[in-house]
Write a protein that binds this DNA or RNA. Sequence first.
DNA 1: AATATCTTCAACCGCATGTAC
DNA 2: GGTACATGCGGTTGAAGATAT
Length: 317
Amino acid sequence: MRTPVPSSVTKGICNSREEESELRRGPWTLEEDTLLTHYIARHGEGRWNMLAKYAGLKRTGKSCRLRWLNYLKPDIKRGNLTPQEQLLILELHSKWGNRWSKIAQHLPGRTDNEIKNYWRTRVQRQARQLNIESNSKRFLDAVRCYWMPRLLQKVEQNCNSSYPLSTLDSQTHVIASASSTNFTVDNSSSSESFPPQTKLAQYSNLASEHSSSVTSPSVLSTDSMPISRQPEFLENPAIISPPLLDNTVNNNLILSDGYYVENSGYHMDGFNPASMPEIGTFGDSTSECQMAEGNWVFDYDMTDTLWNMDDIWQFRL
DNA sequence: AATATCTTCAACCGCATGTAC
DNA sequence: GGTACATGCGGTTGAAGATAT
């Protein structure tokens, strides 16, 4: 993390009011952070303009609010996003788009700014490198057919080692099967298949790491908002399962079409469209995992990207 | 070692929305 | 309903660090 650098630059705002011309901008100093933190500890959050004034900060209320919410607030979680969190971001973004604040609500300790930055710097960069519009169907396909299953798989591995899925929900026993993404619920009264988003919701609990403000499976049932676009694979889990889970050797995956998937790493990396299965590989005409039009054009060096260096889709057997 | 380029992310801005009067 | 102000949100910027040359 970057430590605040004292800023000698006080860009005066050309404003008629002298008071405003003294407003500080730029990086916060330790002293300012201390003032803000102490003031909030005594008086609480809110009334930001007043707070800025009475705390003795030459900042706007907005600036104070932002500093507190994105940096100083005690429950801010630091460090890299976990696979669970990355998965959740992808999932929620596919559902809600750039509703960063809404997405952040389901990742306790993470700020909307952080998630937004993550999306722009990591996800959109990959799209750029692939020469795809990040909001295009093609890119969404790549995300949901490659990143998400990979992350899901990684999360599952983590869960198997440290969080038995069966403990996630006392009412619902999730039978985690490495051979299928068509998750099965056994809730004693009925047995049914449910799509990954339900399972993702379980992972959202993990992502929250025991937070009391944890999301529940209902989170992803999105009862509170209209869903304009539901990724097809969420409704049809079979879409993603066949290519990923055909076989394993030394914990690596061998796809039905001969592609080899090295089972290491879990960042957002590891997608090499050069090894994209042929159109139709995933099954019948309902396959959503074929890239739109199937015409991938890459004008960059695939060896120089996060997508495939250490991770997956490395070579044909 | 010096310089250029790339990446990250804290902070800013403008706009939308909420609320009080 | 109109106005003023506070708050929240999403897009964008630019400084600083990291990496490449």
